[in-house]
Simulated scan of single mutants.
Amino acid sequence: MNDYQRIEKAIVYLKENFKDQPNLDDVARQVHLSPFHFQKLFSDWAGVSPKKFLQFISVEYAKGLLKQNHSLSEVSFETGLSGTSRLHDLFMNIEGMTPGEFKNGGEALQINYSFAATPFGDIIIASTAKGICHLSFTWDKKTDLESLRHAFPNAKLIEQTDALQKNALLFFNGDWENLQKIKLHLKGTAFQLKVWQTLLHIPFGNVATYGSVAGGIDNPKASRAVGTAIGDNPVAFLIPCHRVIRSTGVLGDYHWGSNRKTAMLGWEAAKCFAEH
């Protein structure tokens, strides 16, 4: 059995037996490896540990049950977890929210949103009481508002520019030194949040490669998974996914258009040059 066949067999085993919540020893035994060597091999090939992969499978199954209005105790039992506290920990670790918050789709959450002009085009920006939760370059206001509703289906949306949004918009007017003062309210998997946090450390006017971002989260072989997480960034520009380029020096694709990415990097470089 070669390495690929071992990983394939392990993934199939995890998918078929996740309700039993198998431990590392259980899965390693299926592919005839020691737990230590299996852990390393799986992490190198899949970009995440076997435990994290099992959590992803479990939480996706649990989300399906919650959407069918099963109770938290029922979902815990059906997912193979020992109780609702473990379900809570699983959701907080992977989704960044409680099972109840996922189930109600943001109900009772008020989100203020507004449209604004920037040097790179019009944007829709949205915020909760905790911080900016959404920022996207917009081509069609109606479509972009629907995207916001889809992300927070039961939230109360109010068209209103609040202090959090005003503070964030200052960044487009040259106040780029104060990014750390901008509050963000993000929901995502633990892996996504880790990648987005790493992007915040790329200095203004600089670039990084997908490989260096993967190295920044101590997972140097996860470049492809990092690229997916970067593509899912919900807050354009403030979380600077535009500063990530390919190792060849090619700028690469950008969710909101490669020309816009080029313009952003040029604008930042010019601002840095003007300071020196």
Rank of each mutant, 00 (worst) to 15 (best):
M264E: 00
T198Y: 00
K142G: 13
D20C: 06
E159Q: 11
L164A: 13
S114E: 04
L238M: 03
L193V: 07
A151G: 06
I123H: 05
V59F: 01
R260K: 13
F115Q: 06
Q192W: 03
R86I: 03
L90P: 05
E177D: 07
P119Q: 08
K156T: 15
F237W: 01
F18D: 07
S85H: 13
I158H: 02
S223N: 13
A269E: 08
C133F: 03
G64K: 04
W196G: 02
R224F: 09
D44I: 02
M97G: 04
Q192L: 05
W139P: 01
E159H: 12
H242V: 09
G174K: 08
N219S: 14
P99C: 12
W196P: 06
N2Y: 04
W267D: 11
V250T: 15
F152W: 10
K51Y: 07
H150W: 12
Q30G: 11
A263S: 14
H134S: 07
W176M: 02
K40V: 15
G174V: 03
V31T: 02
D232E: 11
V250I: 14
R149L: 05
G64D: 13
G106Y: 00
E107T: 15
L184T: 11
H201E: 10
G83Q: 13
V27G: 05
T84Y: 07
L251T: 12
S212F: 06
T228P: 06
S85I: 08
K67N: 13
S82V: 13
A62P: 02
A129D: 06
T128G: 08
L265R: 03
Q197V: 03
S147N: 10
L66K: 01
R246C: 06
I239T: 03
G83I: 10
E275S: 07
F172T: 04
T161N: 02
G100C: 12
S127K: 02
D3A: 14
K271C: 08
W256E: 00
T198G: 07
S76N: 11
I182S: 06
D232S: 08
V75K: 00
L179C: 02
F172H: 00
L265T: 08
F38Y: 06
K156V: 15
L90M: 09
R260E: 03
F91G: 09
R224S: 05
A229Q: 07
G216A: 11
S247K: 08
E159T: 04
F115K: 05
A274R: 12
T84S: 11
S247A: 15
Y4A: 05
L251P: 03
T138E: 04
H276V: 15
